[in-house]
Computed example of a mutant assay.
Amino acid sequence: MYTTTPDGTTIAYNVKGEGQLLILLAGQANNHHWWDGIRDDFHTGRATLTMDYRGTGESDKPDMAYSTELFACDVIAVLDNLGVDRADVYGTSMGGRVAQQLAARYPQRVRSLVLGCTSPGGPHGFERGNEVRRSLAQADQGAARHALLELMYTPEWLAAHPGPYQTLGDPAIPAHARRHHLTASGTHDAWDLLPDISAPTFVVHGSDDLLNPAANASVLAQRIPGAELHIIPGARHAYFEEFRTTASRLVLDFLTTATDGEIS
């Protein structure tokens, strides 16, 4: 399905399942396929919504400045098109940054919030180390891809799961959109917004995440009123896929408890 944002951009989205809506927001420069491996975990009495960020998938790819706030506005356009007043939101990586903007700026639209492997950004966020940056910036694209895989998953999981992988970026994203996604994520700074988040919030992170250091989880949980925190031992950036049995159950239990007795 498609909708058009106030600035005229077409956004592609997909809804599966029935029940209370859970919005699943993917990582930087990724399309809705980010969630393919685990999406069905959440179809226990609820529907899921995934979308292609502007610049990815079947959405328009305007050559303009992108931001996590703009991506949040695109989510609102999708909800308006569906006629949905409120939804649960689960954002991972850059999707977690978008989810922060969404919950802080549109509190009446977010019923509960899950922030996975993400960061507040800005001077209060913990950045990846220089060694990680160098590994991803290698001129040899094969070596850079391998470095990213090792940041996403443990060696044991990679040995048992040779791919294909849906978390390494939209293979068809144009160069200008990739740059704009990088800027959007890199310039995110929600520090002043986080105390305004009123939705029940669950922060989850892998203990061994070097792509987005796990220290960011504690910062978010301390800054957001009443937020709960869970660190998954041994997990890297793609904890939600490799450790799906643990992670999906944690998220579902939180969503159920956070909205227990509430009328949708």
Score class of each variant (00 low, 15 high):
residue 2 Y to Q: 15
residue 4 T to K: 15
residue 8 G to F: 14
residue 8 G to H: 14
residue 10 T to V: 15
residue 12 A to S: 15
residue 14 N to S: 15
residue 16 K to V: 14
residue 22 L to H: 04
residue 22 L to Q: 10
residue 23 I to D: 08
residue 38 I to E: 08
residue 40 D to V: 09
residue 44 T to W: 07
residue 45 G to W: 12
residue 57 G to C: 07
residue 62 P to T: 02
residue 63 D to P: 00
residue 67 S to L: 03
residue 73 C to F: 00
residue 77 A to W: 06
residue 77 A to R: 02
residue 79 L to V: 07
residue 80 D to V: 03
residue 82 L to G: 03
residue 83 G to Q: 07
residue 86 R to Q: 14
residue 87 A to L: 03
residue 89 V to P: 01
residue 92 T to D: 03
residue 100 Q to V: 05
residue 108 Q to H: 13
residue 121 G to W: 03
residue 123 P to H: 03
residue 124 H to V: 05
residue 124 H to N: 14
residue 139 A to Y: 06
residue 143 A to L: 13
residue 143 A to N: 06
residue 145 R to D: 05
residue 146 H to T: 14
residue 150 E to A: 09
residue 152 M to T: 01
residue 154 T to W: 10
residue 159 A to E: 14
residue 160 A to H: 12
residue 160 A to W: 05
residue 164 P to T: 07
residue 164 P to S: 09
residue 188 H to W: 02
residue 190 A to R: 06
residue 191 W to P: 00
residue 194 L to D: 01
residue 195 P to K: 10
residue 203 V to I: 12
residue 204 V to K: 04
residue 207 S to D: 15
residue 214 A to F: 08
residue 225 P to E: 14
residue 227 A to V: 09
residue 230 H to T: 13
residue 233 P to G: 08
residue 237 H to S: 09
residue 240 F to E: 06
residue 243 F to R: 06
residue 254 F to A: 01
